[in-house]
């Protein structure tokens, strides 16, 4: 089947487990996130030109690409750092407004995040976001609701957002749970 005419049945491929690493440079106070594949997350601080990167947080996550079973089209999703479900914590946020509107027709809003610092190479295109949305809705076969994925650029002020990215925080922790 030709790519142009195919209605696409998406499938997750090239699934790689690894870590999402948040680093901070204490000289310029810039924050950067990156994906690190492999068994061990980076642990040491390091120098890169003017920057002095310190690891702030490491969480387990996966990265993946999507491919169409029918036509074989491959959509690399290198830019996707994670997904977050809008929990409506900031009434001023445009995503929250969208969420409230969509909730009536049982559409749940998820936000797709790229990497920091923000530039073209690190952000997902609108087209890829649409494909991602298609993929997850195809997987929700029996569902009476649908999902909607929007770009993180839509968030007004990230510092007011309390939602959490879907990733495996605390997985590596060896400390017993603090409270029972």
């Amino acid at each position: 089947m030709k790519e142009e005419t195919c209605s696409h049945t998406w499938e997750m491929v090239n699934v790689q487990s690894g870590y999402i690493v948040t680093e901070n440079c204490f000289r310029c106070n810039k924050t950067a996130t990156s994906f690190s594949a492999g068994e061990w997350p980076p642990m040491e601080e390091y120098r890169e030109g003017e920057h002095f990167w310190n690891i702030m947080e490491v969480a387990q996550t996966i990265r993946f690409d999507l491919t169409c079973k029918a036509c074989g089209k491959l959509v690399p999703l290198n830019e996707l750092a994670g997904l977050m479900m809008c929990t409506g914590c900031d009434p001023k946020c445009p995503v929250d407004t969208l969420m409230k509107e969509m909730e009536k027709s049982r559409i749940w809003v998820f936000v797709a995040f790229g990497f920091f610092p923000v530039d073209e190479r690190t952000q997902l295109s609108q087209e890829k976001i649409a494909i991602l949305e298609e993929y997850f809705n195809q997987r929700r076969k029996s569902s009476s609701s649908t999902i909607r994925i929007v770009s993180s650029e839509k968030i007004d002020d990230i510092s007011r957002c309390f939602a959490e990215m879907i990733r495996d925080v605390g997985m590596l922790s060896l400390t017993p749970p603090a409270t029972e």
Partner: peptide, 10 residues
Amino acid sequence: DCARGEAELS
């Protein structure tokens, strides 16, 4: 510290 959840064994 580990038992209090403030440090990690690693």
